[in-house]
């Protein structure tokens, strides 16, 4: 069954068509790649899926529901979580607190009990923190749980973004250039981590990445965008040899 489906999704910013009639489909359990040169519209695709922007036209369906234009927080509640290309952590909050924010959408106690700091709130807070710590172990950040997130290294911040997104317990995880700025060893670890998230945690993953080796070795299916348009789709081997893709990356005429 398809989990996410884009059908002719389009968005215009003034005269610029950033995403132009893009259609693709993710099945439950997919590990899917979205690639394309800079400015191709990949991040904008993410923004459409997560409700940051409203599509100018076209349909986006998640889990059987049309979600185009739904507010971002509602979409998060439906089960889509994401990371950001230009890291957007809650900078002055601690690592652990960042993750707890992600888990907070599952809270049950009312705000009023929190203002009175009632026992049920204390318990809930403890359990959210415990869950967050478990997630930090997956991304190997449990030792720095109390550090201000802005003080983490770049690679650590990217991993924290993944943990924070996972804390919402999504069905679909969107990763925007998770390997950017990482050294080869960190990339290796990230590769294993993403596999673990899909295979063991059981999430469906859609990721944007520029490092071809990384994408090709990780993803089972790939969609290629160029200048807002979808130019190719298929398994890595087919993409690797697709002349249109090569042209888009190398700037040759087709």
């Amino acid at each position: 069954m398809s989990l996410l489906q884009l059908d002719q999704a389009t968005i215009k910013f003034g005269g610029l068509i950033a995403v132009n009639s893009v259609s693709f489909e993710l099945k439950k359990g997919d590990l899917f790649g979205l690639i394309g040169p800079n400015g191709a519209g990949k991040t904008t695709c993410f923004n459409l899926i997560t409700g940051v922007y409203k599509p100018t036209s076209g349909k986006i369906t998640f889990d059987g529901k049309e979600i185009g234009g739904t507010p971002a927080n509602k979409i998060a509640n439906l089960g889509i979580a994401r990371t950001f290309q230009n890291i957007r952590l809650f900078k002055s909050l601690s690592v652990l607190e960042n993750v707890v924010v992600g888990g907070f959408l599952r809270h049950k106690t009312p705000l009023l009990s929190a203002l009175a700091y009632m026992p049920n709130v204390i318990k809930e807070t403890e359990s959210l923190k415990a869950e967050a710590l478990e997630l930090l172990k997956i991304v190997n950040l449990d030792k720095v749980a109390d550090v201000r997130s802005a003080d983490l290294s770049y690679g650590m911040q990217r991993r924290l973004e993944i943990a924070r997104a996972m804390a919402t317990q999504p069905k679909l995880l969107l990763l925007d250039e998770p390997a950017a700025g990482m050294n080869p060893q960190e990339k290796e670890e990230l590769n294993a981590m993403v596999k673990h998230i899909r295979d063991e945690v059981g999430l469906t993953v859609l990721l944007i990445e520029h490092d071809m080796r990384f994408v090709m070795s990780l993803c089972e299916r790939i969609v290629v965008l160029d200048a807002g348009k979808e130019i190719a789709a298929g398994p890595p081997d087919a993409i690797r040899s697709d002349p249109k893709v090569i042209a888009a990356y190398l700037g040759e005429a087709v």
Binding site: T50, G51, V52, P71, A72, N73, A76, N77, A81, R82, F84, R88, L89, F90, K91, S92, L93, E97, V100, V101, G102, F104, L105, R164, A165, A167, T168
Partner: peptide
């Protein structure tokens, strides 16, 4: 935390369901 999160980054907050 959602209050602090809104202070830090509104877009990330709403992506986290706030």
């Amino acid at each position: 935390l959602p209050f602090l999160a809104v202070r830090e980054d509104e877009i990330a907050s709403s992506a986290m369901g706030v």
